[in-house]
């Protein structure tokens, strides 16, 4: 399993992922922090993996107020990559933007259970949680 998570699903973002893995030293960890996808995506990387593509699409749709389409994009990404914290943050952002603050807070909490400590996604989730509670 460790081998697979390190070899990464995102062959297209391979260079970025490998660079990141080299920096974090995934191979030496007994318990790899949730690897590649979360990190590459939440770091606002332009890796062209499917969930990154859909995440970017959702953000763009959300920015123009197309919440229904944004939700469809991020839910499609979740069916591909269900434990990607950044996607749950994005779903929470769509909820918050469409006036569902309580749901947004739950999405943020869910993201926090999936995000490795000190990751970009964890920071995004904490920030979302704070805004959703206001």
């Amino acid at each position: 399993m460790r081998v697979r998570s390190c070899s990464s699903r995102k062959a297209l973002g391979a260079v970025l992922v490998i660079a990141w893995l080299a920096l974090t030293g995934c191979t030496g960890l007994t318990h790899p922090p949730r690897p590649d996808t979360t990190q590459t995506v939440s770091a606002h990387n332009d890796a062209a993996g499917p969930s990154a593509t859909l995440l970017a699409q959702s953000r763009a749709q959300r920015a123009t107020g197309s919440y229904t389409q944004a939700r469809a994009s991020v839910e499609r990404a979740l069916s591909i990559d269900p434990d990607n914290a950044a996607l749950w943050v994005e779903l929470g952002e769509v909820d918050l933007a469409s006036g569902r603050a309580a749901e947004a807070a739950t999405m943020a909490r869910k993201a926090l259970t999936l995000a490795p400590r000190d990751s970009g996604a964890a920071a995004d989730a904490s920030a979302l949680l704070e805004r959703a509670r206001r």
Partner: peptide, 10 residues
């Protein structure tokens, strides 16, 4: 049914 998504790495 849900449509089948195709992407590299699947």
């Amino acid at each position: 049914a849900a449509p089948l998504d195709l992407y590299v790495g699947r």
